[in-house]
Design a protein around this nucleic acid. Structure first.
Length: 677
RNA sequence: GCCGCGGUAGCUCAGUGGUAGAGCGCGUCAUUGGUAAUGACGAGGCCGAGAGUUCAAUUCUCUCUCGUGGCACCA
């Protein structure tokens, strides 16, 4: 007589099942509805195939479409397999590699057969159709354990060089799992999978694009074709996602930057921004805001040279590591060719080289080193709106988000070891207050020592622990703040805390950082005199909150979809007279608002009010002040606020007061409130 | 830097082996109209750069360049 297995269910009941039975049998025993709805199973916490027999007594939770996160992950993984199967069915000789689920779908990396060109987006409709056929065929997905060698032999026999390479590197003597799709196709995979392809909704996925991707993510390897798709549980979810993509495209900062006349980019200075008056107004407001914040937090602002001798960068270690991404300039008068038409200058062989700064740190150390610093002077916080240049790989450039010239809201805090935790904690609060002012939520992450690094292990131990402690003291080392440690992600000289903002449509952006550096003070020989009269090394904290003005403005444009808060809006109000008889009054209104510091213009053009309303609404001007005969007689204005349906008619004085309040930057607002109280 | 796709009027884009088109925008004129496009007329292009094929290239080929979707990189 065989012993029965005890299977505990989430509701507390225990079912006895025969040995060899699987979650699918439990589902069937409970009822046909559940048997049909079940997609996979959580067995002792691990997601497994529905049909995989229990190993012994177990806690079981059946996964259905209502367990959305698990179900999506499974479906996307299966979509990836179906994609690979479809591609091989259509184009025999295609090599498959691997294809995981992503945040919104899946991809699979494949190598097209030598007989044809790499896949292009034109191939996608045919592949989609083939995928639907596979889903419709409802092929069972069956798990099987194979000896490693058998699998290697199979891949080699099939000409699957990538799969064979991969299998060879998996641990020897270990059984590998494969998944059959029906009886005619299989892929090596850890699983788990849905019971059959028919569990996928053929209307819930869409192939989006193809792209190049390196085998195993390494630039020196073969380049594969990555086919991207988005995959969901049902058609409604897919539609919603495609809609969200469209909405995201509408708020693209490059598009809005042009439409709102904020900035432009052009070939002659690729990767550097031409700021137009309206865009630079945003910059100036942000800069003024950040200066107030930093002044208040006892930072002292400095300005350091754009060009420094290359030897300085050799000493800091940057030249050795990043020379190819730095701009170097010969320190000489260029020899101009006799030929007037040919302006190419020649560089003398013995020219000294200067480099344009890619970062501000070494210059800040140089400022710190002037004179003799006592421990009594620490901490010293040196801030700079530092304009830096980095020669980024061309493929990396992207609008304002990744540029070759950028300005950081940079600062370096020089302090004693004993002061580090408190300084970092205070920074956490400062960063928090800034991000809140822009309506961002954020996650804090700690990037730990990378493989290639300078400095001793004990220093790294200390530096990492200090950052941990500081975040804990700030009360942010918890789930609410998405606290997480990222092994290997730190900079070569220091671990870093990273602030990842979540914007209005849920995307995340890494902006802020603080890094506890003991390497650079050492390399550049920074010291202070301690209580004991001896020289000591300060710890140097590198920190930024916006990151760079360019990128932060790009993020703000997308976050607000161009509808910037009044204090940042380049034009805060437009006065629009209805008939030209009222132009005089309109100008009076404009003058009064201007006198109160409001950024306002009058639109006196010979156009209908409808036209003006439309135009300024599209230009995302927060307040439109319409004035006609009525308003001119009453000394009032009709205010139309962007995004609101109803207009408000109020006296000119009230309008000035209202707009002045609306235009007050968030950090100055609390003062107003206190004054009023 | 690598793979794919692009570059035509200020913007969005159509088109062609015989040197070009639309809409919006811009200018002029008429119109003075109460909350998302008043009408008419007009100006505006070395069709990204260079080379090749051709009687002829914006169109076909190659190289370069910039942009773009990814990859890799991001001090």
């Amino acid at each position: 007589m065989t012993e029965l297995l005890k299977i505990s269910l989430p509701d507390g009941t225990v079912r006895e099942m025969e040995r060899g039975s699987s979650p699918a049998d439990v589902a069937a025993a409970i009822g046909p509805g559940l048997a049909k709805a079940a997609l996979a199973a959580r067995v002792n916490g691990e997601v497994r195939d529905l049909g995989r027999p229990f190993d012994g007594d177990a806690e079981l939770a059946l996964i259905t479409a209502r367990d959305e996160a698990d179900a999506l992950e499974l479906a996307r993984h299966d979509f990836a397999h179906v994609l690979a199967e479809a591609v091989q069915a259509l184009y025999p000789g295609t090599q498959i590699t691997f294809g995981p689920a992503t945040d919104d779908g899946f991809y699979y990396d494949v190598m097209a057969p030598a007989s044809r060109d790499p896949f292009s987006s034109e191939d996608l409709p045919a592949i989609e159709e083939q995928m639907r056929a596979i889903i419709k065929a409802d092929k069972p997905l069956r798990r099987e354990a194979w000896p490693r060698q058998k699998l290697i032999d199979k891949w080699e026999a099939d000409g699957e060089a990538f799969k064979a390479e991969w299998a060879k590197e998996l641990p020897e003597n270990e059984e590998l799992t494969v998944y059959w799709s029906g009886d005619d196709w299989l892929d090596m995979c850890r699983g788990p999978h849905l019971p059959s392809t028919g569990k996928l909704d053929p209307q819930a996925f869409k192939l989006l694009r193809v792209a190049g991707a390196y085998w195993r993510g390494d630039q020196s390897n073969a380049q594969l074709t990555r086919i991207y798709g988005t995959g969901w549980l049902n058609k409604k979810q897919l539609k919603q996602h495609l809609h969200n993509l469209e909405e995201a495209a509408k708020r693209d900062h490059r598009k809005l930057g042009r439409e709102m006349d904020l900035f432009h980019l052009q070939e002659e200075a690729h990767g550097s921004v031409f700021w137009h008056p309206k865009g630079y107004r945003i910059w100036r407001e942000l800069e003024a805001y950040m200066r107030r914040k930093m002044d208040k937090a006892d930072y002292r602002e400095i300005k350091t040279p754009q060009l420094m001798d290359v030897r300085q960068w050799e000493q800091s270690g940057h030249w050795g590591k990043y020379a190819e991404n730095m701009f170097a300039v010969p320190d000489m008068v260029p020899e101009v060719s006799e030929d007037e038409g040919n302006a190419a200058p020649t560089v003398a062989a013995d020219a000294d080289w200067m480099a344009i700064k890619p970062m501000n740190c070494p210059a800040h150390v140089i400022v710190f080193k002037q004179g003799i610093t006592s421990y009594r002077d620490l901490p010293i916080r040196l801030g700079e709106m530092g304009c830096c240049h980095r020669n980024e790989p061309h493929g990396a450039l992207h609008g304002l988000m990744r540029v070759r010239q950028f300005t950081q809201d940079d600062a370096h805090i020089f302090c004693t070891e004993a002061q580090v935790v408190e300084e970092v904690r205070a920074f956490c609060e400062l960063a928090n207050s800034v991000y809140q002012d822009f309506g961002f939520t954020y996650h804090v992450k700690l990037a730990l020592r990378p493989e290639k690094r300078f400095g001793s292990e004990s220093d790294w131990d200390k530096a990492e622990q200090e950052l941990r402690d500081a975040v804990a003291e700030a009360g942010m080392a918890n789930e609410e703040y998405g606290w997480e440690e990222l092994p290997g992600e730190g900079a070569f000289y220091a671990p870093k805390l990273e602030w990842h903002l979540t914007d209005a449509i849920g995307r995340t952006w890494q902006v802020g950082t603080i890094q506890g550096d003991r390497v650079l003070p050492d390399r550049l020989d920074a010291t202070y005199v301690g209580e004991d009269g001896a020289r000591h090394r300060p710890v140097m904290l590198h920190r930024a909150i916006f990151g760079s003005y360019e990128r932060f403005i790009g993020i703000l444009i997308e976050h607000y979809a161009g509808r910037l808060p009044v204090w940042l809006a380049p034009v805060q109000a437009v006065v629009a007279p209805i008939v030209s008889d009222i132009d005089g009054y309109a100008q009076e209104v404009e003058a009064k608002l201007k006198a109160s510091g409001i950024r306002v213009t009058s639109d006196l053009r010979n156009e209908k009010i409808n036209y003006k309303v439309r135009e300024h609404s599209l230009a995302k001007v927060p307040h439109l002040l319409v004035v006609g005969k009525r308003e001119a007689e009453e000394g009032s204005v009709a205010i139309r606020t962007l995004g609101e349906k109803e207009q408000q008619v109020m006296s000119l004085d009230d309008a000035v007061a209202m707009l002045t309040l609306a235009a007050t930057p968030p950090d100055l607002r609390s003062n107003l409130d206190t004054d009023a109280a």
